[in-house]
């Protein structure tokens, strides 16, 4: 059995979805881990150089994060996710992430787990496997997982409650809609959220949608959405669209599932105000700021004397 000293977690993609669960799980087992820094232009450049040009901006960043970590830890943690629901699928990036990184860096040690609910590989099974790779027995692993899961639930409930609270704010409210790994990335979503906060806007993030609505609201747009993560986005859009003053849809270019659901959003938006922002490898924020500034002017509607 190999004893692992330090696990490296790239700050990208699934990290933003499972941050609490992963950190708590490793903490409970006393496994040391490091997380890569916030995205910066060096990370983007390194990722871009190693990646095929057709990959999305978020994947390029992820590879950059792996590069920034690989000499600082003993192994990198990259799970594989195929499906989170029996009849649905997640983006192919998450299907291939493990193999992709393994091919790019054959010498790199990777620990992983595999979730594929379609083929009965559930989250708990996946974590037992992960524990095994780290040298822990089944009992300890399950205990650590359950405790971590509990913390994750508490945190999610807290986030969801505070989102509901934000809805009653007196400020202008904007729903920032997109994948958490884009909304929270230093180079992508932070440009937008920093600008909005500076202009006294209350931001509601699409991932703050209370869980009970996820499998409900998307049906108003389409009876079936094949992509789990985009189903969540559609539900968030339908739930919040009339409760906020505007919606900003944030996409990394090129995203397959997003191109489909963004189209649905634009067609079904009705009277709500929607701004679509596509992020590519831009070196300046000017174009983004122009669009944000005019969007705020529009929802405030007060400059038109």
């Amino acid at each position: 059995m190999i004893i692992i000293l330090t696990v490296g977690i790239p700050r990208g993609l699934l990290y933003y979805r499972y941050e609490t669960l992963w950190k708590e799980f490793f903490n409970n087992l006393n496994v040391k881990y490091i997380i890569s820094d916030n995205s910066n232009f060096k990370i983007l450049k390194d990722g871009k150089n190693k990646c095929i040009d057709e990959a999305c901006l978020s994947l390029k960043l992820f590879i950059g994060h792996v590069i920034s970590l690989k000499d600082k830890c003993d192994c990198i943690f990259i799970p594989r996710i195929y499906s989170l629901e029996k009849t649905e699928q997640v983006c192919t990036n998450f299907n291939c992430l493990y193999d992709l990184i393994h091919n790019l860096f054959p010498d790199l040690k990777i620990i992983n787990y595999n979730i594929d609910v379609k083929r009965k590989n559930t989250e708990i099974k996946a974590f037992i496997n992960l524990g095994k790779q780290l040298g822990f027995n089944k009992k300890d692993t399950i205990k650590a997982y359950k405790m971590a899961k509990e913390k994750e639930n508490i945190k999610q409930t807290y986030i969801q409650n505070s989102a509901e609270h934000k809805l009653s704010s007196n400020k202008k409210k904007i729903l920032l809609l997109g994948h958490p790994y884009n909304l929270n990335d230093n180079l992508i979503g932070k440009t937008v959220s920093n600008y909005l906060s500076k202009n006294n806007i209350e931001i509601i993030y699409s991932y703050e949608l209370p869980k009970k609505y996820i499998n409900e609201y998307y049906k108003k747009i389409s009876p079936k959405v094949h992509w789990t993560m985009n189903k969540e986005l559609l539900s968030a859009f339908m739930y919040y669209k009339d409760k906020v003053d505007g919606v900003i849809v944030l996409t990394a270019f090129p995203c397959g599932p997003d191109s489909l659901t963004n189209e649905m959003i634009l067609r079904k938006k009705g009277k709500s105000k929607v701004l679509l922002l596509t992020f590519e490898e831009l070196s300046s924020d000017v174009a983004v700021i122009t669009r944000l500034e005019s969007f705020i002017d529009m929802i405030e509607g007060c400059v038109y004397a």
Partner: peptide, 13 residues
Amino acid sequence: IKNEITAHAIGTL
């Protein structure tokens, strides 16, 4: 110093 959208809308109006 204002963006083009707002400026155009106000000018046209």
